[in-house]
């Protein structure tokens, strides 16, 4: 299991990098970055069924670490009522914009699987 160690040193290094990147990148808070950050917030709702970080293996499938394209295609299919056998997911997927669904797919694809 990976660990984090938020020591002052790590923070200082992170800040250094941030400084460098902020200088070279004209618009750090691009819409894409804000959306990714937001996805990390709204994605936490999914954990109430899929387990923390979407990793729990039950009759409800785990979603962490699955390919982004697959997750995205499934979410879009749910939203468009094109997923045979679906139960509650179409009703939930309709509550999110297309951009949010894409950001959610990316978020979970980047998490390590169980």
């Amino acid at each position: 299991m990976k660990q984090i160690l938020l020591t002052a040193g790590v923070l200082a290094v992170a800040a250094l990098f941030a400084g460098v990147l902020v200088q070279s990148a004209p618009e750090p808070e691009s819409g894409e970055v804000v959306l990714a950050d937001r996805a990390a917030v709204i994605a936490q709702s999914c954990a109430a069924c899929h387990g923390t970080e979407g990793r729990l293996v039950t009759a409800i499938p785990p979603i962490a670490g699955r390919p982004e394209a697959v997750l995205h295609a499934q979410l879009v299919a749910f939203k468009k009522d094109q997923m045979p056998g679906a139960t509650v997911m179409p009703r939930l997927a309709k509550g999110f914009t297309d951009e949010e669904l894409a950001a959610l797919a990316r978020y979970f694809s980047e998490l390590p699987p169980e």
Binding site: I4, A14, V22, V33, R106, L111
Partner: peptide
């Protein structure tokens, strides 16, 4: 140290890291 959370994820959850970019110059 908090087990079970990757460093990248923790930073991202804190809003420090976006989609591959680093933000927040006033972090420390």
């Amino acid at each position: 140290a908090i087990p079970g959370i990757s460093r990248r994820e923790a930073l991202r959850l804190l809003g420090v890291v976006g989609a591959g970019s680093l933000l927040g110059a006033a972090l420390p």
